[in-house]
Amino acid sequence: MADKIKITVQRYRPEQDREPWDQSFEVEYTRETSLLEALNSIKDTQEPTLSFRWSCRMAICGSCGMMVNGVPKLACKTFLRDYAGQEMRIEPLANFPVERDLVVDLSDFIEKLERIKPYIIPKKGESQPGEQREYIQTPAQLEKYRQFSMCINCGICYAACPQYKLNKEFLGPAALTLIYRYNEDSRDGGKEERMKLVNQDTGVWSCSFVGYCSECCPKGVDPASAIQLGKVESAKDYLISMFKKKGE
C-alpha cells in the first residue's frame, strides 16, 4: 500500500482572493514520486483549478521553481520520499510577486537577464571566423566558464538571496553569473561593456556573500562564486580606471 503524505499548497486567485490562503491535500506516493507528479495528480483528481508552471519534469527547463517547507526547490527534482513522516508546505517562489496559486511574476528576473547583453560581442579589431571555421577554444578555456553556462534560469537563486529580497534593484545571482560566463568566454570582447553594470552598487556590490544561492542552485552553478570572481574583476577594473585619464 503506497504511503500517504499531507501537502499544504498556498492558493491565490486574483479575482476572488484579497490574499493567499492554504489548501491541504492527501497524496499517495511511491519511491519515485516527485512533488511535480504529486501536484499534477492533485490537479487531475482533487483540485483542477490549482495552477503552476511545469514542462520537462527532468530539471532542465527551469519552470517549476517553488518553496518547499521554506526552501526554494524545483518541484520535479523534489521527491516525497525525502519528506516521509513530515508535512510538506508548498508556496510560490519567494521574492517574486504572486500572480496566481504557485505562479509568480518572473518578468523582473527575465528583464535583468536581457539587460546584461548576454551574447558574444566580437573583440574589437578581430573579425569572426569564416562561415566554415570555428573559434579555437581549448578545453581549458571552455572550463573557465563552463560551470556558469549551466544556469537554467529557474530563479531559485533570486528566491534564496536575502539581498534581492531587501533590494529589488540588485541585478541578482543568475544575471551576474551570466555576465561572468560571457566575460570569461575566450570568444567574447564585450567585457568592458558589461562591467558598467557589474561596477554599480546594484551590481556585484550588493552581494554580502550569504552563499545561500549556491546552496539552493539545483544545477550546481555556484553563482556565489561567480559574484566573488566578479568582485575581484570589478576591483581590478576600479584600480585600472584610477590611472586611466578621465578624458579617455
Binding site: Y119, E131, T138
Partner: peptide
C-alpha cells in the same frame, strides 16, 4: 547543417572540443 552549427558556435554555443580546441 555545418554552416548553421558554425554560426551557433560564433554566437557562443559551448560545443565540446578536442584537446587542440577544434570542434
Amino acid at each position: 547543417t555545418t554552416r548553421e552549427l558554425y554560426q551557433l558556435e560564433h554566437w557562443g554555443c559551448p560545443w565540446s572540443r578536442k584537446p587542440d580546441g577544434r570542434i
